[in-house]
């Protein structure tokens, strides 16, 4: 059974960037689901549309939108990479992102502010297409990372292991089982 790559935008090494416009780096935390796949603990993400500063600002924005204290930076960095890739194919998006991010930095680096201040700044731009576009992309990409799946207790596809039929689809024990008449027999 061929397993589709869960993270095409991270693992896809077929598409090399023509011009590297920025880089974000970090270190995987101990126990990261990616540690099993990655050859080393330090990671680097190359950007093809945004600068390093813009990437860092965007990453801080993503964490403020979805503040999971136990989610490592690498997960948010994958979203930065995904958005950067989209911007590479869409001039209008690229301009919108660059403008929006520079506005966030207008009163000093956004990434350096405390959370209350970052949230207040974001509240102000909540109705803008820039904010909504980043928010929706973040929802789509962040919760598709293995780190978010591990954090939220989502096991994902188990077709390759025979489905949940024998892997806990009915293992809930803190409530009584419904009578057979309203459910159905297990086909063993």
């Amino acid at each position: 059974m061929e397993q589709p790559s869960p993270l095409p935008w991270l693992i896809d090494r077929r598409r090399f960037l023509q011009n590297v416009t920025g880089v974000i780096t970090g270190v995987l935390v101990a126990g990261s689901p990616l540690a099993l796949l990655a050859p080393s603990r330090s990671w680097a993400i190359e950007l093809g549309s945004l600068s390093s500063d813009e990437g860092t600002t965007l990453m801080a924005m993503l964490r403020s939108l979805a503040p999971h204290d136990h989610l490592e930076d690498a997960a948010y960095a994958m979203v930065v990479k995904g958005i950067d890739r989209k911007a590479g194919q869409d001039q209008a998006l690229r301009t919108m992102l660059k403008d929006g991010l520079s506005q966030l930095n207008a009163d000093g680096p956004f990434a350096g502010q405390d959370e209350d201040r970052r949230v207040a700044l974001l509240r102000r731009i909540e109705a803008t297409p820039f904010f909504q576009s980043v928010r929706v992309d973040n929802l789509m990409m962040l919760y598709d990372t293995p780190q978010a799946a591990a954090l939220c207790g989502y096991e994902g596809e188990v077709f390759s292991k025979g489905g949940y039929l024998y892997r806990g689809f009915n293992d809930l024990k803190w409530l009584p089982d419904p009578p057979l008449a309203d459910a159905g027999p297990l086909d063993l």
Binding site: F169, N170, L172, L175, D177, P178, A183, G184, P185, L186
Partner: peptide, 11 residues
């Protein structure tokens, strides 16, 4: 026959 009860259905 009906489908068996899942966890979500039990709740």
């Amino acid at each position: 026959p009906g489908l068996p009860a899942s966890n979500n259905f039990k709740v």
